[in-house]
Design a protein around this nucleic acid. Structure first.
Lengths: 151, 151
DNA sequence: AATTGTCCCTATCGGGGGGATAGGGATTAA
DNA sequence: TTAATCCCTATCCCCCCGATAGGGACAATT
């Protein structure tokens, strides 16, 4: 149940692109602004382009830009492009899991967990995060004081 | 964002224990009923005991039993005992993450995601899963048809 | 006290993947 | 032609995941 460094980096890079609007941004800018490891992020940028989340331009005056408006790209899409489907169990999607005996209803729990994640990650766009104005139900989640307590 | 095999196995073992009520259950029974790898599950049982989620008894007529009633043990507690804190980012809890520039508000998103997970996993007990009667808000999540669609 | 059945501990393994780097090739603009 | 940039492949290290082996500790029975 952890979020990979790669996915975290990917979202940060995308946010940095969103902040620069439609203009081309060089990888060095992204990397410096967020303080990320160079070569590693380069491979992430390739992944993001292949997932059609960003567009690239080579040569002098090259760079990267979002493939769509920041309001049309969700955090969930980015995480999925990098890490694969949300909340997999032993390499299976939650809905593909089959359980017997006492565990018969366990799949329902994993599916609910995935749905809960989707409600946050798929309904929060880069534009939301950039502006610091999250959707109401996400904001309520993040604002609750107990959400910030360790467990 | 995946649920480890170890955590999945742990929950299934716990459910099997819950199904047997307060009586001692031998590891072989648990393993056979759920079709799990023997030696691997033995190490999981040790972890669960150290986390004070189960009690064990050695010798002939030994076995395992829940440390508390099934209604007082949540799926979240089990997952946490096995995999560590929910939704960590680069080994840090979401609330410990610090971001700058365009990513300034990203921590809010990770915290919201964790809170969403907690709402499902921490409020669903073994008794709920065993009976197939999940808490209302979890059931609503799991029942939504789109929750079962891949993305 | 010997036996038996169970849990318990440590060590180990193969494989894979996460995080990261190196080096150079391809492309574009000037 | 040159310089800047993205792009690709390969590689590295290391840790962890999933899983196994073998034997030690313990409790009950006899």
């Amino acid at each position: 149940m952890q979020i990979s460094a790669k996915a975290d980096y990917a979202v940060r890079v995308m946010l940095e692109l969103a902040a620069h609007g439609p203009e081309l941004v060089k990888s060095n800018i992204l990397i410096d602004h967020q303080g990320l490891p160079r070569k590693f992020v380069e491979t992430i940028l390739v992944d993001l382009r292949r997932a059609d989340l960003i567009r690239s331009h080579r040569g002098a005056d090259g760079g990267y830009t979002l493939a769509r408006p920041a309001s049309a790209i969700s955090v969930g899409q980015i995480v999925r492009a990098i890490d694969g489907p949300l909340a997999e169990v032993r390499g299976l999607r939650p809905d593909e899991c089959e359980y017997t005996n006492a565990a018969a209803h366990l799949a329902d729990v994993w599916v609910a967990a995935r749905a809960a994640l989707r409600k946050v990650l798929d309904e929060t766009s880069l534009a939301h995060v950039l502006a610091g104005k999250l959707p109401a139900h996400v904001r309520r989640m993040a604002e609750s004081p107990e959400a910030w307590l360790p467990r």
